[in-house]
Write a protein that binds this DNA or RNA. Structure first.
Length: 213
DNA sequence: AGTAGGATAATCT
DNA sequence: GATTATCCTACTG
């Protein structure tokens, strides 16, 4: 709805909060989002792919909100972002985790038969694998039904939201722009391992408490 | 249970 | 040629 676009047009951290609980569908699989990360635009956020300006890869980020920015990382994995804020800002929200609420059988076939239900979409690349999202979704609209992936508002009320540092980023790691639904077992629990090249100073003590099961 | 290391290729300098 | 918004496996205690 236009209401969703309105919320996605807000500053990235607020748009990220609005995305929690939303339903992402691709094919016959639907995921309810439980964990997201906000990324600012040009010059505002050193962790953002758009920080250094437009490139062929991040061009989608400079367009209007509600479009998918899908990128390939570590030679293996796809990650899904939702472009937010008005056109030209180049802000986006990384979809990090969710719960598979529809098409569980298909998701499990893609992820592996032995994978636990809570792990089906627990992590950015796991989520895209469960949904079958790849390069084909890059640059398509998530809100007008024209693309392979659809974003819909929450079906019911969303619970309490917690926030903390983002995972796996170097610059801007201290910005608490990671948001998740408190106590949800599908929130990723990966510990932000130290960067390979340089050892930062006191970067310890920021272990998120997503699912202390 | 917790951690360390490797896989593997597009993108940008 | 270096870097990377990750995940899986294997190893240690």
């Amino acid at each position: 709805m236009t209401d969703l676009i309105t919320r996605l047009s807000r500053p990235a951290p607020r748009a990220a909060r609005a995305l929690l609980g939303c339903l992402v569908s691709a094919g016959r699989v639907t995921v309810r989002l439980t964990e997201v990360e906000a990324y600012g635009g040009v010059g505002a956020d050193p962790a953002s792919h758009a920080h250094r300006g437009p490139t062929p890869r991040n061009a989608i980020m400079f367009g209007p909100p509600g479009f998918a920015y899908v990128y390939f990382v570590f030679g293996m994995h796809w990650c899904l972002n939702v472009v937010v804020e008005p056109a030209g800002r180049a802000a986006a929200v990384l979809v990090r985790a969710g719960e598979v609420v529809e098409g569980v059988d298909l998701a499990r076939r893609r992820r592996g038969e032995a994978v636990a239900h809570r792990d089906l979409a627990r992590g950015p690349a796991r989520l895209t694998t469960a949904l079958g999202i790849d390069k084909a979704a890059d640059g398509t609209s998530l809100v007008d039904g024209s693309g392979p992936v659809t974003l819909a508002p929450p079906a019911g009320p969303t619970g309490a939201v917690q926030s903390g540092p983002r995972v796996g980023v170097v610059g801007g790691a201290e910005t608490p722009w990671r948001f998740w639904l408190a106590g949800d077992p599908t929130v990723s629990a990966y510990r932000p391992h130290a960067p390979r090249g340089r050892r930062g100073t006191g970067t310890t003590g920021t272990v998120p408490e997503g699912a202390p099961s």
